[in-house]
Amino acid sequence: MGWKISFCPNTNFRTMFQVRPSQFELECRHTIRSHGRQLARDHRQDWLILLLLVVIEIALNVINPFYRFVGEGMMEDLMYPMKENTVPLWAVPLYAVFLPMIVFFLYYLRRNDVYDLHHSVLGLLFSVLITGVLTDAIKDAVGRPRPDFFYRCFPNGRDEYDRWGNVVCHGDPADIKEGHKSFPSGHTSWSFAGLGFLALYLSAKIKCFDRSGHVAKLCIVFLPILVACLVAVSRVDDYWHHWQDVFAGGILGLVVATFCYLQFFPPPYQNEGWGPYAYFRAVEDLRSNPLPQDTTNMLGTNQERASTSVVGSNLDSAFDAMESGRK
C-alpha cells in the first residue's frame, strides 16, 4: 500500500563500501549515549518547571474547592445515583501518559533519534501537567456540583437547608469535597491532552497529510481520539459529570496538546513534519560544521570503523605524495 516509512537513507552500492560513514548516516545517529546528556542539560529548566507543575497539581487537589450555593430548586438535576468510575483514576496515567511514551520509545529504537524521544516525552508531560493544573484550578474556582451531589450531601436521602436555602450536608466530607469538582472533567481533559498529543505525533510519523490519498491512515490517527471520546462518554454515564463538563474538558485538553506539540515539532502537514525542530537544527549544524574524524565514534560508529578510517586516510596521503614526486 506504500505505507513504508523511511527517514534515513537506504544503503546502496556507494555507501556499502565506504569505510567512513557518510554525512547522511551521521545525521541519523543522535542517540541517548551520544547526545542524551547534553540534551537533558540544555533543557534542565524545562524539567524543573515540570516538577513545579507537579507540586502545584498536588496543592490544587489538597485545597478545598469553592462551595457553591446549592438550593432546593437546583436539586432536580443533582439527584443521580452515586456510581463507581468505569475508568478508574489510576488508569488515566496508564493510557494517557505511559502508552504514548511506549510509542515514542519504539520509534526511537527504529530511528535512533534522541531529539525525537526527548522532545516527545517532554512535550507530552507538559501537555498533561499544564492541562491538569488548568483543569483543577478551574474546578476549585467554579465549584460546580456533580450530577450525584444530592446523595453525596445527603446519603440517607433526607435533605436539609439553612435559613438562606443553602444545603446543610451531613455526608462524608471527602465525598462532599469531591462533589464540588464537576467542571471541567479531569478524566476527559487528561485523556485528550495525552491521546491528542499522541494523535498528532502519529499523524506526523505516518505522513498522514502527504497528499498520496491513503485515507486509511486516518484510522490510526483517530484511534487515540476515539479512546478519549469513550472516556468522556463514560464520565456522563457514571453521573460524575454533566455534558458541558466533558465538552469543556475535551476542548481544553486538545488545545493544550496542540500548543505543546507545536513547541517541539512542525505541523504534521508540512514536509518536515515527521521530525522535531531540534533534529533539523542539529543536521544543519553538522552540514555547516563537519565533525573531525576522531568524533565519529561519538555518533555511533564502532572502534573498528574508526581505526580503518584512519588507516585509509594515511594511505590516501601516501598515494598523494607519490603522485606529486615527493616519494
Rank of each mutant, 00 (worst) to 15 (best):
T258P: 02
D159R: 10
R281Y: 11
R281W: 12
S234K: 06
Q293W: 02
R37L: 15
R68I: 03
W243R: 07
M16D: 10
F126V: 03
I63K: 15
S309D: 13
L315Q: 06
L124S: 13
K217G: 09
H118P: 11
F150T: 03
W3P: 06
P100A: 05
G171N: 06
L122F: 02
E84I: 04
S127H: 05
A318L: 14
Y107F: 07
Q18L: 13
L52S: 15
R110K: 15
S212L: 15
S120E: 00
I102A: 13
M16E: 07
R211S: 12
E323D: 11
R211A: 10
K327H: 02
F319C: 10
N64L: 10
P290N: 04
L262P: 09
D245H: 02
Y279S: 00
A306I: 15
P81H: 05
V227S: 12
N289K: 13
E25H: 11
K205M: 05
G143A: 12
G300H: 08
D113K: 03
R235E: 01
A257N: 12
K217A: 12
F126H: 07
N112Y: 05
G325Q: 10
G179N: 05
R158M: 10
H187N: 10
F105Y: 14
S189M: 05
L299F: 14
K205V: 00
A318I: 15
W47M: 09
Y80A: 03
I225K: 15
W240I: 01
F104Q: 11
C229Q: 11
R326A: 14
M1A: 14
R281S: 06
F66W: 07
M1C: 11
Y115S: 03
V54K: 02
F264H: 11
R305V: 14
D237L: 13
N61V: 00
L315C: 04
F259W: 12
K139D: 00
Q23I: 10
K217W: 13
G300A: 01
R110F: 06
I138G: 00
M1Y: 08
P147H: 01
D148Q: 05
L200Q: 12
K4W: 08
H30N: 09
A318M: 12
